[in-house]
Design a protein around this nucleic acid. Structure first.
Lengths: 211, 211
DNA sequence: ACCTGAACACCGTTCAAGT
DNA sequence: ACCTGAACACCGTTCAAGT
């Protein structure tokens, strides 16, 4: 990854990709257009097409650039501790690059940097004593849960937001929504955040029989 | 929901929304533009703005229309059986309307039709003996897992695709990827589909202590 | 009241042309 | 070799105007 230091530095595919990643991290995936990115780089729009066949190919390179940024947890402690650390590291990585969860969905997981992340997870599951076939299944469940948590939950909901959800559920007609009424108190806490994520990881590891 | 029967039927917000839902189900979310939808309805683009303030408001109505289509499972059997049926029903509902998982993410769950679906899930978790606070947490985990599975897994991967993944992982250098090599066989099966989804639901229910 | 064309500020990408 | 403006076929939305 070369730094695009000077304003008129020679362009490279990697440099363009990391500029695109920065744009996407700061302003969201929808802010990234070929025209906007070229403008930011001080270059004509069509120049980018000398480095990437089209926008999809640029997005692949953005995914690759973001994947470099995964921080593998220490390979210390018992397997359960390692798996919890691994899941947290994956969540934090995705929170740093939320566009990743929007760009995955079609993409498979077969790019080299991603495979190294997968290797770490499966390794920990095998060390925990799972049979290889079950380790594969368990890994995929953890993967889906982690991506889902980032895509469909608030990263760290504020107190106000939690209280608003609890209040809204308490205000529901009790005849029609008895269960929601009883769970209103807990719904605020369950909204999102690291604690709720850890709860899910814990229940999954329990379910896998990993103590 | 009124049927937009004749080609020149009087427009209604509901009718427009269900036309938009049909378009999105058949051709994907990216096929839905105000211009294309208006064309399909045989009407000027700007006519739509008489029914919806903007595209976001139309998308809200599309979500509402799709939400009507959830098929609640029978309230029969023991709580575990009911929860499995509930999770499967939710997955199948999302598979019928994949745009829902793309449109969720920002939206909260506080619309009336969605609340009725949530009520059913929390009810089953309370019936299974969970404390209200844990039922709220468990529900959110199931929600995240189900949405994640539809968003980040193939609905029903073909034999070819499964075999290709197994082959790709077996071909990896064993020195660098020992765990992936051992799990290659299982990775094909874990790719996606109903069975893999059920495996995850089962482990979660085990983790919740629901037998 | 209900509908709409023109216009504006955007897209991704092809093509032919510049240095 | 490397870069690019013009053009084409699209967007969402504002505005002023039609019936």
């Amino acid at each position: 990854v070369t730094a695009p230091a000077g304003r008129r530095a020679r362009l490279t595919a990697d440099g363009i990709a990391s500029s695109a990643l920065r744009l996407v991290d700061e302003e969201g995936l929808e802010a990234l257009s070929m025209r906007r990115l070229a403008d930011d780089l001080g270059v004509g729009t069509m120049t980018l097409y000398g480095y990437f066949r089209n926008k999809d190919e640029l997005l692949d390179a953005v995914v690759d650039a973001a994947t470099q940024d995964f921080e593998p947890p220490a390979r210390r402690g018992n397997p359960r501790t390692r798996l919890v650390a691994y899941a947290r590291a994956a969540r934090e990585w995705l929170l740093r690059h939320p566009a990743l969860v929007q760009l995955r969905g079609r993409e498979p997981i077969l790019r080299p940097a991603a495979l190294r992340i997968t290797e770490l997870g499966i390794e920990a599951l095998l060390d925990a004593g799972l049979e290889p076939a079950e380790a594969a299944r368990a890994f995929r469940v953890l993967f889906v849960y982690t991506f889902g948590a980032v895509a469909f939950s608030a990263a760290e909901p504020g107190e106000d937001e939690r209280r608003a959800v609890t209040a809204a559920m308490r205000a529901l007609p009790a005849a029609e929504f008895p269960a929601l009424g009883r769970a209103a108190e807990g719904a605020g806490a369950a909204l999102g955040g690291a604690e709720q994520f850890d709860y899910g990881v814990g229940r999954l590891l329990d379910g896998f029989g990993i103590r």
